[in-house]
Design a protein around this nucleic acid. Structure first.
Length: 480
RNA sequence: GCGGAAGUAGCUCAUUUGGUAGAGCGAUAGCCUUCCAAGCUAUAGGUGGCCGGUUCGAGCCCGGUCUUCCGCUCCA
C-alpha cells in the first residue's frame, strides 16, 4: 500500500513535468535543490487557485481588503517579529548517533545536570561562558567548551562531535553597494509582517472598523536545512494569508469561525471531507494562544496545507515597542484605545496546488470497442481551476471545419481560456486534454455545417451531447 | 547533515567480459482515415550529469563533484 502511494507520487511528479505544470528550477543545470518552476499549464492552475482564494476572501467579505507588500522589509521588522532570535540557532551533530542538537540546549542540559550534583557555581560559570561565546558567535570556543566539559550525546554516549554550524533560516542580502552590518536585509520568511506593519495605513486609508481583515498573496523564503517532497517544502514558496483584527477577548469565537470557514473553503472545491482533517497544535509558538492545522491527505500522508493561528496582540505590540509608534485602535462605541488581537489564516499556495493536483490525478480503465480495456490518465480538476476550460477541435483538417472551429475559438477566448488543435486523431486529442484537466472539448463535424451544432465531450464521464454553437459560450460559463 | 540507491534522446528503458550509442512511446512535416492515444512515409533530437584519473581506447573501471529519490534528522 505504502509503496503504491509512493509510486503514485512519482507518477504525479513525472506527469507534472511532462504536461507543463512543474519543472525543476534551472533544469538544464541539473536543477536547484528544492526550487521549482511553474510551466504553462501550472501557472494557469496556480493563478486560478490564487484567484479563487482571493475572491473568497476579499470580494466575498465587505470587511476584508487586500495588500501587496514588498518582499524587502526594514531589518527591525524581523527583530520585532522574533525571527532574528528564534529563527537562527547554532547546531552541532554527534557523528556516532547522527543526532543533531541545538548547542544552547546541549549545554543547558549539562548545566542543569551539574546543578543537580550540587555544583551550582560550575553550572553558572558554564552558562555565562556559553552566553559570551554565543553573543560573539565564537563557534570554535563553543565547541571547545563542549569538549572540555566532556559533554556527551545522550544517545551514543560519546563526544564525537562535528563542528558547530549556524543554521539561519532567513536568507540574507545587502542593500546599497557597501556591505555593512547595518545594510543587511532579509528576504521575508513569512508574508504576515507586511500586513502588521501596514495595519495603521490600511485601517485609516480604508476607514475600516473592527473586526476587519487584510489579505495578501506573496512569496516568502526559508533556508530550510532539508527541503524535500517536491513542491511541498520549497525554499522559495508562496503564501496566501489573511490577518483578521478583532477586539481582545473575542479571539476564541473568531478562531472557531475561521477554523470552520477555511475548511469549508477547501471542501467547496469538491474534495471529499475524508481527505481533510484538523490537527490542533500541542506546542504553541511564542506568539500564539491557539493554533490548528488543516491537513490534507497527500500521497505521502496527512500534512499541513493551512494553519489557523490565534496570534493575540503579540505582533502589533512588538511593532509598537520597536517602532515607538502607537499601534492602537480607537473603538468609538466603548471610547477605548487598545491593540487589536489577530486571527491568522495562512495557506501554502504551492501545497494547495499539490493537494489539488494529487487529488485530481486519476488513472482509470477505459473499455475499448473490442472488449479489452486500456488505461487513461485524467486530471479531474474542479472546472473553475482548470488551466483550459474548453478545447476546440475540427474533426478533420478540411471541408471548412477548421474555419468554423476558429470562429468558435475567437468567440469564446474573450470569456475563458480555450485550446485549439487540429492535429492527430480525435481520440488522441481528447486524451491530451484529459491529461491537463480540460473539462470540456467540442468537436466540429460535417453535421455542424448543416445545423450549427457541435458535440461537447465531458472529461470525467467521456459522454457526448450535441449543443447549438450559439449556446456554447453560455453553457461553459455556467460551469464556472 | 548522515546512510542507501540512481543519473544514457522530451518520457520509459536497452547497449552481454572497456572498442567513440539503439528501441518503443512522444515531437515535427506529409499522406490516408475520422468521435476516444489507428496506419504509412520522412525528419529532428544524445561531447552518456559534470570534472579528473587509469588505458592504445571509457557510457562501462577508479576518484571527486552536482542533482534527484528513499530512510533518518530538521521543519516558530
Amino acid at each position: 500500500m505504502e509503496s503504491k502511494k509512493e509510486s503514485n507520487f512519482q507518477k504525479i511528479i513525472a506527469h507534472a513535468k511532462e504536461y507543463g505544470f512543474i519543472y525543476p528550477s534551472s533544469d538544464i543545470y541539473d536543477g536547484l535543490s528544492a526550487v521549482y518552476d511553474y510551466g504553462p499549464t501550472g501557472c494557469e492552475l496556480k493563478k486560478n487557485i490564487k484567484d479563487y482564494w482571493w475572491k473568497s476572501m476579499t470580494q466575498m467579505h465587505q470587511n476584508i481588503v487586500g495588500i501587496d507588500a514588498a518582499i524587502f522589509m526594514h531589518p527591525t521588522t524581523w527583530k520585532a517579529s522574533g525571527h532574528v532570535d528564534n529563527f537562527s540557532d547554532p547546531m552541532i551533530d554527534n557523528k556516532d548517533s547522527q543526532k543533531r542538537y541545538r548547542v544552547d540546549h546541549l549545554i543547558e542540559n549539562y548545566s542543569s545536570e551539574l546543578e543537580q550534583k550540587g555544583l551550582e557555581k560550575e553550572a553558572r560559570d558554564l552558562i555565562n561562558l556559553m552566553d559570551l561565546h554565543l553573543k560573539n558567535e565564537d563557534f570554535s570556543a563553543l565547541k571547545a567548551l563542549i569538549l572540555s566539559h566532556n559533554i556527551k550525546c545522550q544517545v551514543s554516549n560519546t563526544c564525537n562531535w562535528t563542528d558547530i554550524r549556524q543554521f539561519n533560516l532567513m536568507f540574507k542580502t545587502e542593500i546599497g553597494s557597501v556591505a555593512e552590518e547595518a545594510n543587511t536585509l532579509y528576504l521575508r520568511p513569512e508574508t504576515a509582517q507586511g500586513i502588521f506593519v501596514n495595519f495603521l495605513n490600511v485601517q485609516k486609508s480604508s476607514r475600516l472598523k473592527l473586526p476587519f481583515g487584510i489579505a495578501q498573496i506573496g512569496k516568502a523564503f526559508r533556508n530550510e536545512i532539508v527541503a524535500r517532497q517536491f513542491i511541498f517544502r520549497m525554499r522559495e514558496f508562496e503564501q496566501m494569508e489573511m490577518q483578521f483584527f478583532i477586539p481582545p477577548g473575542t479571539q476564541k469565537k473568531w478562531f472557531e469561525y475561521w477554523k470552520e470557514t477555511r475548511l469549508n473553503w477547501h471542501l467547496s472545491l469538491g474534495t471529499p471531507h475524508s481527505k481533510y482533517q484538523y490537527k490542533p497544535h500541542v506546542k504553541l509558538a511564542h506568539y500564539a494562544d491557539a493554533a490548528v492545522d488543516i491537513e490534507f491527505e497527500f500521497p505521502f500522508g496527512f500534512k499541513e496545507v493551512e494553519g489557523i493561528h490565534s496570534r493575540t496582540d503579540y505582533d502589533l505590540s512588538r511593532h509598537q515597542e520597536f517602532s515607538k509608534k502607537k499601534m492602537t485602535y480607537f473603538d468609538p462605541e466603548t471610547n477605548q484605545h487598545f491593540i487589536p488581537y489577530v486571527i491568522e489564516t495562512s495557506i501554502g499556495l504551492d501545497r494547495m496546488f499539490l493537494a489539488i493536483l494529487s487529488q485530481a490525478y486519476t488513472e482509470e480503465p477505459v473499455p475499448k470497442e473490442d472488449g479489452s480495456t486500456e488505461e487513461r490518465i485524467v486530471l479531474k480538476l474542479p472546472t473553475k481551476l482548470a488551466p483550459y476550460k474548453l478545447a476546440i477541435f475540427p474533426l478533420t483538417k478540411k471541408d471548412g471545419l477548421p474555419e468554423i472551429a476558429q470562429t468558435i475559438y475567437k468567440e469564446c477566448q474573450t470569456s475563458f481560456y480555450c485550446f485549439y488543435e487540429e492535429k492527430d486523431s480525435i481520440g488522441k486529442r481528447y486524451r491530451r486534454q484529459d491529461a491537463i484537466g480540460t473539462p470540456c472539448c467540442v468537436t466540429i463535424d460535417h453535421q455542424s455545417k448543416e445545423d450549427q451544432t457541435v458535440t461537447i465531450r465531458h472529461r470525467d464521464t467521456m459522454l457526448q451531447e450535441r449543443v447549438a454553437i450559439k449556446d456554447l459560450k453560455m453553457l461553459i460559463n455556467s460551469y464556472l
